[in-house]
Design a protein around this nucleic acid. Structure first.
Lengths: 114, 114
DNA sequence: TGACATGCATAGAATTTATATGTATAATCC
DNA sequence: GGATTATACATATAAATTCTATGCATGTCA
């Protein structure tokens, strides 16, 4: 999984998926590509890793799936972010920010105001 | 484990331990307290979680242990950051920063220059 | 026709992790 | 003195998670 540790990938996976869906409905294959692009190729998700996450998020009612069609007629399973998912994303971002602040604090660097 | 997800705790554990040791030698019990303080009580490590991490880091030659004594004469196992550990910490911080940048990018917020 | 990209899904092996438990000593409180 | 709490390290094992391989199916392109 590239140079990024398993733990780091695991910790960021859910916020990433929810963030991507916040920008608009998407589907598994496209999400994997978006993550690759977003990371400049440093994060390569296996599909066998993403689908269980999507299913889990759907079961948690954070996202909602529906079948759609690609331009060529092939079917795709799209996911839409639900309100609960938006809220959860905020929580996850806060938590990430907290840990980030911890690491910065002990690194001895001036914390960034954003 | 407080409000922070397991994954987030796992992803930050190694950089935190190495960062703490970078500020000076320390030992298990104290590290747990330092993490609690650093997080304002939001991250509570169980000792049964930390010791295996310390042992792993020692086996990886990133840190080195030695027995010392507390003021009252009780023995303590201290850990010192080795050069390889300093290098690894840099790598981990870079990787963390990369993922942080990804999350910020997709959040649509101006990245902070620090 | 064969190869490759797109696209979804899951079983089960393999790994990881949490928790309970064990040991021991010092300090504190009643 | 006796009980309790804080300090301090350690690990076995039950429980949970996760990775990987595999399967299926269709469209495109050479």
């Amino acid at each position: 999984m590239s140079i990024l540790s398993k733990d780091l990938v695991a910790a960021s996976a859910t916020p990433l998926v929810l963030s991507i869906l916040k920008q608009g409905d998407s589907y598994g294959y496209a999400i994997i590509q978006q993550v690759r692009e977003l990371s400049d190729g440093e994060m390569e998700w296996a599909d066998g890793m993403l689908y269980p996450i999507l299913h889990r998020l759907e079961k948690q009612k954070l996202i909602q799936s529906y079948w759609g069609k690609a331009e060529n007629g092939r079917k795709r399973k799209y996911y839409r972010l639900r309100v609960a998912g938006t809220n959860e994303l905020s929580r996850l971002r806060e938590n990430w920010q907290r840990v980030h602040a911890m690491l910065k604090k002990i690194e001895g660097v001036q914390p960034c105001s954003t």
